[in-house]
Design a protein around this nucleic acid. Structure first.
Lengths: 245, 245
DNA sequence: CTCAAATGTCTATTGATCTAGACAACTATA
DNA sequence: TATAGTTGTCTAGATCAATAGACATTTGAG
């Protein structure tokens, strides 16, 4: 018998959303693998101690995400299960890491700009405040579903053609190579979690109210000189981060 | 003039909670450092395009967390700013990493049990399903504020006195040493983010509706034999994870 | 002291969320 | 072909979330 699961009221997060989050987690944990379907609505309602209608709202949200599909008379089937695991290691390369997990990987350049380095960027890249940097804004998708949005910053003096090269080569690693940098390593990564803002909701096509994992990372050349600072925001319900040390 | 910030309606996350999250983030980003206080309620209401009462609900939640303090006639002052940074590296040791950031570190043992290894635990520790493991449940705090709750699992055959040793020594590293294991390294860490469940809310004293960062990690001895599997859940609004490679 | 600016409190109203119950429609199985 | 089990739909009422407006109270500056 499933243990009674508790949800909290008057928290500013609607019950249906809390329950949707829990069911999503249970699916990705494989709790329902035996049957391949979610428990009946009445069972879930009893489990969470709420009305069946509340469970239906939660399931409707998950159906919207394409995670489950309800069939009248039969039940609610699981359509998709796994979170994509994004590896973070000394040599983190976006497309390589996702390799086997998704068939199609796409990174789309949303825009680029040359600008003066602000405090955070200058500090991360260890350049002077106001030094020119190139900013790239990208969205990455796996099998057509957006997985992350990023803003990346490069010192413009050292990598003047970053935007053009990236637009053409579709790869940061190759764009670095075109500037004569053949290898680089991840120096540090900081991870925080928070609710997605409106821009992230629309870019990541998230069901609103969702959570993002934000990773701020610095890559450096082999002389430990920073070459890239980036802020990547991952859709937390589609991704997990895997740290390999 | 501050840019108009957008919040989404009918998402299952109340506006006041979305706004509280955004203000919390702005505080930890240092956006309000110049004045040392949050903008006036009317300014925030205009910025987010909501009623002043809605902003007041958000600020009340932040005051509850001890993050801000409102003074009639003056404004709402920032009481606390930084997130604690939790380092994850090859040799991750809980108390060392937090060293300078908090004055008092405490880890309290909530309970322990000897049990048969379930699927996930057995897989992580690379032992047979049903082999005995020792489970430790702990809460860790910094300066009196709970930062994380953990469930950790150790192969009982190799570390039979883990619970007693930990209770006495207040340190996993020392408990390992008491069993003759002097060094161990972090093999892998997986990080996901989600809304806190009721148990986490109460253990971490979170303002309900909050987000947790869950890190599932495996530590191994120098022969790469796993010695610990643990699931740590961090209060996402108080912590960031720092990965050092 | 006076006044502007800020937070504190109250009432009233609207819309979203949750509960409750009843019944229809569909599916698989005995 | 019944029947149990499941999802789909409808109505009604209770509670929470958000808006709107008015006014009190406190603080700091001129």
């Amino acid at each position: 018998m499933a243990m009674r699961k508790v949800v909290e009221r008057q928290t500013g997060v609607a019950l249906w959303r809390q329950i949707a989050d829990r069911i999503r987690l249970a699916i990705s944990n494989g709790d329902y693998d035996a049957a391949g379907m979610v428990p009946p609505e009445t069972a879930l309602a009893a489990e969470f101690g709420v009305n069946r209608h509340t469970v239906r709202s939660a399931l409707a949200a998950l159906a919207d995400e394409g995670l489950v599909r309800a069939v009248q008379g039969r039940g609610t089937m699981i359509e998709r299960k796994e979170r994509v695991s994004y590896p973070i290691s000394k040599r983190t390369r976006f497309s390589q890491g996702l390799g086997r997990q998704v068939k199609e990987i796409g990174t789309r350049l949303l825009g680029h700009a040359e600008m003066a380095a602000t405090g955070e960027v200058a500090k991360a890249l260890r350049i002077a405040l106001g030094d020119p940097v190139i900013e790239l804004r990208t969205v990455s998708s796996g099998d057509g579903r957006p997985l992350s949005v990023s803003a990346s910053y490069y010192p413009a003096n050292r990598f003047p053609r970053m935007a053009e090269d990236f637009a053409q080569l579709h790869s940061v690693t190759k764009a670095f190579a075109a500037h004569g940098l053949d290898d680089y390593v991840r120096v540090s990564t900081e991870i925080v979690a928070r609710h997605a803002d409106a821009e992230e909701l629309s870019m990541l096509k998230l069901s609103p109210g969702a959570i993002v994992l934000e990773a701020q990372s610095v890559n450096a050349d082999l002389d430990a000189k920073p070459v890239e600072y980036s802020r990547s925001r991952f859709a937390a319900d589609r991704m997990k981060l895997r740290i390999e040390t």
